[in-house]
Lab assay of single mutants.
Amino acid sequence: KKSYVLIKVKNPKTKETHTIVVPEENLEEVLKALASQPNVKVVDIERFP
């Protein structure tokens, strides 16, 4: 059974918020990819039960 993680990201320029759902096993690479985006800020990470 896969567990999923909900990542909320915000664009500081446009103030838009997006929610991305990723499998927990991919969380680290997704966070690394997001960290390299200049106008993306991770605001929240939630685990799915």
Rank of each mutant, 00 (worst) to 15 (best):
K1H: 10
K1W: 04
K1T: 08
K1R: 08
K1M: 08
K1F: 06
K2H: 14
K2P: 15
K2Q: 09
K2A: 07
K2T: 08
S3K: 08
S3W: 15
S3A: 12
S3I: 12
Y4W: 10
Y4K: 06
Y4Q: 04
Y4T: 04
V5N: 01
V5G: 01
L6C: 05
L6W: 10
L6G: 13
I7W: 00
I7C: 01
I7Y: 00
I7G: 00
K8A: 04
K8W: 11
K8H: 15
K8R: 11
V9F: 13
V9W: 10
V9Q: 00
V9I: 10
V9M: 06
K10C: 14
K10D: 04
N11S: 04
N11V: 05
N11H: 06
N11F: 10
P12A: 15
P12I: 15
P12D: 15
P12Q: 15
K13Q: 11
K13Y: 12
K13N: 10
T14A: 03
T14H: 03
T14S: 07
T14V: 02
T14Y: 04
K15M: 13
K15E: 10
K15F: 09
K15N: 13
K15A: 08
K15D: 11
K15T: 05
E16H: 13
E16K: 14
T17S: 06
H18E: 04
H18K: 09
T19P: 01
T19Q: 05
I20V: 04
V21K: 09
V21Q: 05
V21G: 02
V22Y: 01
V22S: 02
P23Y: 12
P23A: 13
P23E: 09
E24C: 09
E24F: 09
E24Y: 10
E24G: 04
E25Y: 05
E25K: 05
E25T: 05
E25N: 05
E25S: 07
E25F: 04
E25W: 08
E25L: 04
N26K: 12
N26L: 14
N26D: 13
L27W: 03
L27G: 01
L27F: 04
L27Q: 02
L27T: 02
E28F: 11
E28Y: 09
E28Q: 09
E28W: 12
E29F: 09
E29M: 12
E29S: 08
E29T: 07
V30P: 00
V30Y: 06
V30K: 02
V30A: 06
V30F: 13
L31Q: 01
L31N: 00
L31V: 02
L31T: 01
L31A: 01
L31F: 02
L31K: 01
L31R: 01
K32N: 07
K32G: 04
K32T: 07
A33G: 06
A33W: 14
A33Y: 15
L34E: 00
L34F: 04
A35V: 05
S36M: 13
S36V: 08
S36E: 11
S36A: 13
Q37R: 11
Q37Y: 13
Q37P: 02
Q37D: 13
Q37W: 11
Q37K: 10
Q37E: 07
Q37L: 13
P38V: 08
P38T: 11
P38R: 09
P38K: 11
P38L: 07
N39H: 11
N39K: 04
V40P: 02
V40D: 02
K41L: 14
K41S: 09
K41E: 13
V42W: 02
V42R: 01
V42N: 01
V42A: 02
V43I: 12
V43A: 03
D44K: 11
D44L: 15
D44Q: 13
D44I: 12
D44G: 15
D44R: 13
I45D: 01
I45N: 01
I45W: 07
I45H: 02
E46L: 15
E46V: 15
E46Y: 08
E46N: 07
R47T: 06
R47E: 05
R47D: 04
R47N: 05
R47K: 08
F48E: 04
F48R: 05
F48D: 04
F48A: 07
F48C: 14
P49D: 14
P49I: 08
P49S: 06
P49W: 03
